[in-house]
Design a protein around this nucleic acid. Structure first.
Lengths: 169, 169
DNA sequence: CTCTAATCCTACCGCGTAGGTCGGAGAACC
DNA sequence: GGTTCTCCGACCTACGCGGTAGGATTAGAG
């Protein structure tokens, strides 16, 4: 598989925040406990995940009673490549892939067993293309889309997902 | 990361076979030992990997002395989606993704915690798009391309890889 | 006819990491 | 001051990846 549950839970957490997000600048924050119950996720684990999102500046928090988290931007302005990068710490199709700087979305990608033979590793071309496809698919999806998708009646969700995926491909 | 070393080693193995592959129908087979030495990979591990490729019909073998493996098709006719599918047993971006039939390239994809809540999982749309991007990138790459890439002088490889990746994206 | 080089097959193992828990310390609101 | 939150770091466990061991089988070479 590609992504761990960090990405899964983190995205679902953001969707839950995006659902409560109205146009106002600073709405009432949502507590992790409420999100954990709504999505049936372990609270203690969510704490560590949301810390990653906060460090990336995607959410902000207010402590204390009636505190919680809220988005720092409009859901339509949050693209999933940034989200997954914050949660997973990079999007690399193979262990030998390391980005030169932190962000793997635009940075140069380097295979670290480059000099083992005269003719480099032939798979580098392949993994580079795969990574490009993943990042592109992530960047084209916004949080607002996922929020809208999650509010749709279930029987139409499958067809919509397939249609959107076909549009991407 | 996305893929394990099974995919990495398997692709490199195929590249090595493709390099020896001339136009003739049944050329002299290449032994695993030769490939293991050329690519500096553990022989015993390669045995298990090549078994997957054989089961998928991508290579055929002759046993006994001076035996080995050879491709069943021209390198230009071997697309990487089929290869990775054979090696990794499916291309799923998340554990909850399972294909209805064996092949994940065209089969319908289903999230197995579909019915846990009223509003399905919002991440399904995202993972479907990601998987589409990966499969597309794999399907667009043939073994012949990788063979040609691996024979190129090293100093031009990086620039070429980036250019090709940009063309895909 | 045997020796040898190769494919085949199955069981085994160590180790890193994903996934999750626990307990507690600060911060705000009543 | 108690309650409700965020925050933080240590800790634990199951599992799968990556690799090894050892053998059985097949077929060409001499």
């Amino acid at each position: 598989m590609i992504f761990t549950t960090k990405a899964e839970y983190g995205v679902r957490l953001l969707v839950e925040l995006g659902r409560q997000h109205d146009g106002a600048g600073a709405p009432t924050p949502v507590s992790l406990k409420a999100i954990a119950e709504a999505e049936a996720l372990p609270l203690a684990y969510l704490e560590r995940i949301v810390a990653l999102l906060k460090k990336a500046g995607l959410v902000e928090s207010t402590r204390g009673a009636h505190g919680g988290y809220r988005l720092t931007r409009q859901p339509a302005e949050i693209h999933m490549d940034e989200v997954v990068l914050a949660l997973e710490g990079g999007v690399a199709p193979m262990t030998c892939f390391v980005a030169e700087d932190g962000s793997s979305s635009h940075g140069r990608v380097v295979c670290n067993h480059e000099a083992d033979a005269g003719h480099g590793c032939a798979t580098k071309l392949l993994w580079t293309r795969v990574q490009g496809g993943v990042v592109k698919a992530l960047a084209q999806t916004t949080l607002a889309e996922l929020v809208a998708f999650s509010n749709r009646p279930p029987q139409t969700q499958t067809a919509t997902a397939v249609r959107n995926a076909a549009a991407v491909a």
